[in-house]
Every structure is written in structure tokens, then in C-alpha cells.
Amino acid sequence: MDIRKLEYFLAIVDCGGFNRAAAALHVSQPSLSQAVRALEHDLESELFHRIGRRAMLTEAGRALIEPARAALRSLDTARASVASVNELRTGRLDVASMPSQAVEPLTTLIRDFSRRHPGVVVAVKAVFTTGDVVDAVRTGAVELGLLASAGPLPQKEVSTTALGVQRFVLLVPPDDPLARRQSMACAELAGRRLIVGQSGTGMRAYVDSLREQGIAFTVAAEIEHRVALLPLVLAGVGLAVVTESWRDLAGQAGAHVLDIEPATALNIGLVSRRGPLSPAAAAFLAMADTESDQ
């Protein structure tokens, strides 16, 4: 089977249609359609329901997604293995990360990896939940995933390297009376206005657990775009419970950071698929494992 046909198929899936996929691939739409028809002929099954200009996946098409990604990832691994004789002078590493962990430890990991292998591009995909990270790694959309979990780190279907823990802290604007303190009890959040993340995130699970304990606070804003956290806090919209990965960045921006007592933390881990990894992924994983032991 021509691997190019699988690339075209996945481009249609990821781009949401033939026209967008053709533009992303820099090929004509008729050429793309012809390649897909040839793939359908090879597989003896329709992959898309064509409804006007829309293309909806058939059951066979949905079944092909994961094997197609695995085939392309295996080809990338083979190519990268050959390129490894050049000591990782070129290449690409795809990593999925939850937002707060993209602040730290991902920033430090990419910095250290780039110093060792400056020719390798690290491409970071934004995902929001632990399940999303595991799925991205399991299906081959990325090779590595950085996640945080309130419970044990996931082990099913992926390999996991523990990177430590991150406790929850509170971000407050510099003019808030709390800015004169270094810590506070979680019960003191009662009556406060909080900026929270969407359901499924560790930050949201923690503040929801406070409400279950009878700590009544007001949700001032619910956001998916974590880059808005600091501006919203500094603008006085509310306070934000985040992991301590934000501590340095928040301090540099002018926000004050308080420890929340009793200390509650998330487990941080780097997950990879089981089986052979590309040289870049293997090098990144080995470096992260070494740094976590220091």
C-alpha cells in the first residue's frame, strides 16, 4: 500500500475535509480525491460518506485512523533511526502537554534538550486532560506526553516515567491583602472569586474538591486558554489556583504566589508508547529520567 495514500487520508481527517487537506498538502483537490479513491479500492471499502462538499468518516474510515497513524509513525521511526547516525543533527519530536506542565517542567526539558540537539525541532501539541495525553501517545499522534494526575500515573497502554510532584498554589494580584502573606489555609478561599479551568483538568478537580468540603467560593471565570490566567489575576478578576509550575512566571509578571495548606499535589509524568521510539524521543526520555533523579 502506498504510504502517501495514508498520509492523504489522515490529512483529510485532521483538516476536516478534502479542500482544507488539499491546501495543507499543497496538492490539487482532484489529485487528493483520486488518491483516496485508490486507497478505498485497495481496502475494498468506502472511507468517507461524500455529502455535497462534506466528507463524513464511515465506520471503516474510523477503524483505519489508528492503524494509519501507527504505520506513519513506524515509517518516521525507521527514517529517524537511519538519521541517528548523524547524532540527531536534524529531526522532529512531537510532544503533547497539559497547559500548566507546558510552563514547567516542559520549558526546562526543551531548553536542555535543545542545547544537546539544536537541530531537532520539538513540536508541542496542547491537550487539556490526562486522558487526552494518553490517547495522543497511544494512537501515535505524538511520541511523548507530559501530564499531571491527582492519582497514580497511568500505566495502561503506555510507559510512564515519573518526574516528581507539583503542589497547588494561589495566584493573587499585588494589591490584594493576601499578597502580604506566604501561605493560607484552603478554608480561607471561602467567599473568594476564583478563576477556574475546564472540567477534566487537575486544577478544576482540586477546586471542585474544595467545594465538596463545604468551602463556598464564586467562580469568576472559567477558561480553557491558560495564557489568560495571569492577565485575569492581575486585572483583579479573581484569584487562581494553579500548580507551582507557575511560581516563577507569575512572580516575574507581578503576581504574588501563596502556598495553600494543607499541601495537595499532582503527580507529574512523561508517557511514551510501548515499543521502539525514535532516537529523538528516546534521547528526550532518557534526559528527563536523569534530571528527575537529580
Results as ranks from 00 to 15, higher is better:
Gln198His: 11
Ala24Asn: 05
Val122Tyr: 02
Arg89Asp: 13
Val242His: 08
Ile110Ala: 01
Ala288Trp: 06
Ala179Arg: 11
Ala63Lys: 11
Ser292Lys: 07
Ala216His: 12
Gly202Asn: 13
Gly254Lys: 04
Asp293Tyr: 00
Pro276Asn: 03
Thr90Arg: 13
Pro173Gly: 09
Val27Thr: 14
Ile260Thr: 09
Leu170Val: 05
Ala78Gly: 11
Gly275Met: 10
Thr161Pro: 06
Val196Ile: 15
Ala288Pro: 12
Leu194Ala: 03
Ser45Asp: 03
Val233Lys: 07
Phe48Glu: 00
Asp248Ile: 14
Gln155Phe: 06
Arg192Gly: 02
Met287Tyr: 03
Arg204Phe: 02
Ala205Glu: 13
Asp42Gly: 05
Arg50His: 11
Ala148Asp: 08
Ser183Pro: 00
Val13Ala: 06
Glu104Ser: 13
Phe9Arg: 01
Gln213Thr: 08
His256Ile: 05
Asp2Met: 02
Ser272His: 14
Arg192Gln: 15
Lys5Met: 11
Gln155Asp: 12
Ser31Gln: 04
Pro154Leu: 04
Ala221Glu: 13
Glu224Tyr: 01
Ala23Cys: 00
Thr290Phe: 11
Arg211Ser: 11
Gln166His: 15
Ser159Trp: 11
Gly238Met: 10
Thr161Met: 07
Val134Pro: 10
Arg193Asn: 09
Ser199Ala: 15
Ala221Lys: 07
Leu6Val: 05
Ser81Asn: 08
Glu7Ser: 03
Ala78Cys: 09
Arg116Cys: 10
His117Val: 02
Leu106Arg: 07
Arg92His: 08
Thr264Ala: 15
Leu194Glu: 01
Gly197His: 13
Leu39Asn: 00
Pro152Asn: 13
Arg20Trp: 00
Ala187Leu: 08
Val241Asp: 05
Ala148Phe: 01
Asp2Gly: 01
Thr218Leu: 03
Asp2Thr: 01
Asp248Ala: 15
Arg115Pro: 00
Glu40Ser: 04
Arg167Met: 03
Cys15Leu: 11
Gly191Glu: 08
Ala235Gln: 14
Ala60Cys: 06
His49Tyr: 12
Arg111Tyr: 04
Leu43Gly: 04
Gly17Ala: 05
Gly236Cys: 07
